[in-house]
């Protein structure tokens, strides 16, 4: 009976995951391997294709384009293009935070926690979740962006000026290793819930109910991995070890953003991201 409950929990979280996250790993891997049958993603590999890619999308992810329909005719400096791209990334990240929040609320017991603790769990967990969710979109050569409509090359991201060029490379290094574990979307759903329900986040008021919830999800994840990957030895332990790498990645990411805030006069950080990163690490 206990196993049945854990399987039901896994099924519930997988359904929530599919409901709130539009680009699944299955879909992303199909796009990356050219098996979708649709047209291939637009490839951004230099400044020119970046501008063309923005015009290719020309929709809600690009609010600045809508405000400036003359952009196609204006010769912009690479600095301006980089900064605008960074703003678009922020806009998408804020939307992703909303998706993660909805997923967190669907974890059984989460909305019953102290509201302050719900805020803390999201504040500290959401960037870790976003980094994990980036992994399926990446391969060693680049990453899908804009819901899989665009593929941006790793080399192009490395060619941006400092510190923009330093932002994605650690995520590529992490993702290439993480993808070797070959988790699927149903495994990912449970792992994301485990990350969100971390009882050691600073400032939590009532740790016990969070740890209890996490323990149940951990059991569900362990069972899921045994059933879904019977030949992958110690997979559960290997997955959990990734949580240590994640914390370091987030710490470095937040420091880079803080550096950007100091060095880029034209940079404004999305208010939701500001709220999350303020006094984070």
């Amino acid at each position: 009976p206990e196993s049945a409950d854990l399987r039901a929990l896994a099924k519930h979280l997988y359904e929530s995951y599919l409901k709130y996250f539009p680009l699944t790993k299955a879909k992303a891997r199909a796009i990356l391997s050219g098996k979708t049958g649709d047209s291939a993603p637009f490839v951004i590999h230099d400044m020119k294709s970046l501008t063309e890619g923005e015009q290719f999308i020309n929709c809600r992810q690009m609010p600045l384009m809508e405000q400036r329909p003359d952009l196609g005719m204006v010769q912009e400096s690479p600095d301006e293009v980089e900064l605008r791209f960074f703003h678009s990334c922020q806009f998408r990240s804020a939307e992703a935070v909303r998706e993660v929040t909805e997923f967190a609320k669907s974890i059984p017991g989460f909305v019953g926690l102290d509201l302050n603790d719900q805020v803390t769990l999201l504040k500290y967990g959401v960037i870790e979740v976003l980094i994990i969710m980036m992994a399926p979109l990446m391969n060693k050569d680049g990453t899908l962006i804009s819901y899989g409509q665009i593929f941006m090359t790793r080399e192009f991201l490395k060619s941006l000026r400092k510190p923009f060029c330093e932002m994605m490379e650690p995520k590529f290094e992490f993702s290439v290793k993480f993808n070797m574990l070959e988790l699927d979307d149903s495994d990912m759903a449970l792992f994301l819930a485990v990350i969100i329900l971390s009882g050691d986040r600073p400032g939590l008021l009532n740790v016990k109910p969070i740890e209890d919830l996490q323990e149940t999800v951990l059991h569900a994840l362990e069972l899921q991995l045994k059933m879904n990957h019977p030949d992958s030895l110690q997979l559960f332990a290997k997955v959990l070890q990734k949580m240590t790498d994640l914390r370091q990645l987030v710490t470095d990411h937040v420091h880079l953003i803080q550096l950007l805030k100091k060095t880029e006069v034209d940079m404004c950080l999305h208010p939701l991201l500001q709220e999350i990163m303020k006094d984070l690490y």
Partner: peptide, 21 residues
């Protein structure tokens, strides 16, 4: 904490999008 995280708090309460907030 909720005071310092008004947008997160609002997302948790009613799920408005960041832009609506």
């Amino acid at each position: 904490l909720q005071e310092k995280h008004k947008i997160l708090h609002k997302l948790l309460q009613n799920g408005n999008t960041p832009d609506e907030v």
